[in-house]
Amino acid sequence: MKLVSFAVGRSTCVQQRSRTMEGETVKLISAEGFEFVIDKKAAMVSQTIRNMLTSPGGFAESQLGQVTFPEISTPILEKICQYFYWSLDYASGKETEFHIEPEITLELMMAANYLHT
């Protein structure tokens, strides 16, 4: 199964942003195979992803510009992408709430620990 992120209705905001912002993009792939194309800058909010993309020696991720997360499900990865953009805005002074639905909290926490976010 291969779907491009903007085909998923809920993630349009992500796609819109990536269109407006200049620069490189990376592809994050969920356990189910959903692909999220987001700005590299946003992805680098995660320390783990930053290492994956910048570590010397040419790992597969930095060569292809895509990272697969076999242990993160699509909704969680989507939420994470939203968080990346929210975090960038927050860092640049736009103080809004980031809403987290209670039922995904636990899984999100696990992913955050993994991604060192």
């Binding site: 020696g57 790992f59 597969a60 991720e61 930095s62 060569q63 993994y114």
Partner: peptide, 20 residues
Amino acid sequence: EIYNHNASGLSFEELYRNAY
């Protein structure tokens, strides 16, 4: 592999996940 300069085929994510 890293010491042999053969890292290009490796998946960072996989190794990281394993160590994790």
